[in-house]
Amino acid sequence: MASSVSHLDPMPKVSIRAADDTVAAQALGLAFGSAEQRDDTLVVRIRPDEWILLGTGALALAAELDLSGYASTVDITHARHVIRVTGTHAADTLAKLCSADFDEAMTPNGAAWGNSIAGVTCDIVRDDHGGERSYLLLFDGSFVAYFLGVLEDAAGEFSSDS
């Protein structure tokens, strides 16, 4: 598929806020702007002081964290939805709606950042699968009807050469 858009089933998601000097921050690690798969959980350092855990193990992983100091967790499973855009034209699809540079050097696999896509504020994670370009888009779930429509419209251009 040149570019496919799929709305992922609700998967557990946790937001962890932690200052640099906390145990939780040390435990989560990662550089700001990057993501890493750890077992069944994708750990994303989406902001300098915020990590998002995605996947079946997210809640468990969050529960294990030592939240001493200035750290907190919020279950955002229901607050944010996830859409995955995959395919050789995944980046082209997003480039129709998002001002970010999807070039390999600027947003390599594992890059994570916040951006606006078609007017919806998203956290974007480059999460290639099997060597195929793929992006996870986390966004406020109330936009889902609108957002899916817009993404599918954008991807439509690339569906013929799938």
Binding site: F32, R47, P48, W113, G114, N115, S116, T121
Partner: peptide, 12 residues
């Protein structure tokens, strides 16, 4: 000298 808010990025 002015102030900006990185509202869609780092939120700082």
């Amino acid at each position: 000298r002015e102030s900006w808010y990185c509202s869609s990025g780092c939120r700082k």
